[in-house]
């Protein structure tokens, strides 16, 4: 009897450790799967745009609690909550520009409705929102590139003449007409998606992309000579002399 008691204790301790290890490992595996899912969930499809003020996808997925209040307060059929099976993390708000663009309400009701601040309450001027960036992605089908005056993307842009301008250049095909190239300026484009929505083609030639995808970034160490010269107010390397330009065909 005296030896039996410690034995039983040892057995139950072993049992306890085995049970604990089993639960811990099972839950650990579940956690691993969940963690990997969370990582994968960050790869938002480029057609899905977040509401104004959403910030980066990483921070948004940490702050959004999937309540849908932004969707409820959106006065247009723009925002929807991702359902299970959609390519967007379930329960998060998004819109597809080609289906329904952001109408850029002055009072930004979606941002006001967000209880967590996942849609940044500091955003009070809708023109400052950056939901994405329009890119004239297909020059081969854009009617303006073909020499026509479609101009629809330019006309519908809420920040007309700033976010999209028409840049005139020579029509090389006809030799004596002009083409008016819709040109997006990232410092003013809000990514609302109206241009993509109203592009008259079967498939839009101008598309709103997530900022990270659409925007290039110049190397931090790059110096643009002409700007440096302007800043300094004089030649950066004094005494440089200009060599004569050689023009094609031996022209002077």
């Amino acid at each position: 009897m005296t030896t039996q008691k410690p034995k039983r204790a040892a057995k139950s301790r072993r049992q306890f450790l085995a049970d604990t290890a089993r639960t811990a490992c099972g839950v650990g595996v579940a956690g691993l799967v969940l963690g990997l899912m969370a990582k994968q969930a960050r790869s938002l499809p480029p057609t899905a745009l977040r509401p104004p003020g959403a910030g980066t996808e990483d921070s948004f997925l940490g702050a959004c609690i999937r309540c849908g209040l932004c969707v409820r307060d959106c006065p247009y059929p723009t925002l929807s909550l991702a359902e299970l099976g959609d390519p967007v993390p379930v329960g998060t708000p998004y819109f597809v520009a080609r289906k329904a663009p952001c109408e850029m309400c002055d009072d930004i009701p979606c941002v006001a409705a967000c209880p967590t601040g996942a849609l940044d309450p500091a955003l009070t001027d809708i023109d400052k929102s950056r939901m994405g960036l329009a890119v004239l992605i297909d020059e081969e089908t854009c009617l303006n590139f073909l020499g026509l005056r479609c101009d629809v993307c330019y006309r519908v842009c809420p920040v007309i003449d700033k976010a999209i301008t028409l840049e005139r250049s020579h029509n090389v095909r006809t030799g004596h007409h002009a083409v008016f190239i819709p040109t997006v300026h990232s410092e003013h484009c809000t990514g609302c998606g109206k241009c993509e929505r109203s592009c008259v083609l079967e498939e839009a030639a101008i598309k709103v992309m997530p900022l990270a995808l659409a925007k290039g970034q110049i190397g931090g160490h790059y110096r643009l000579g002409w700007k440096e010269k302007e800043k300094a107010g004089h030649e950066l390397v004094p005494g440089l002399f200009d060599m004569p330009d050689r023009l094609p065909g031996g022209q002077p």
Binding site: M37, A38, A41, R42, G62, C64, P89, G91
Partner: peptide, 12 residues
């Protein structure tokens, strides 16, 4: 997982 991944992972 929320802490490690910085996202509300369980809601997935």
């Amino acid at each position: 997982v929320a802490w490690i991944t910085g996202s509300v992972a369980w809601e997935l």
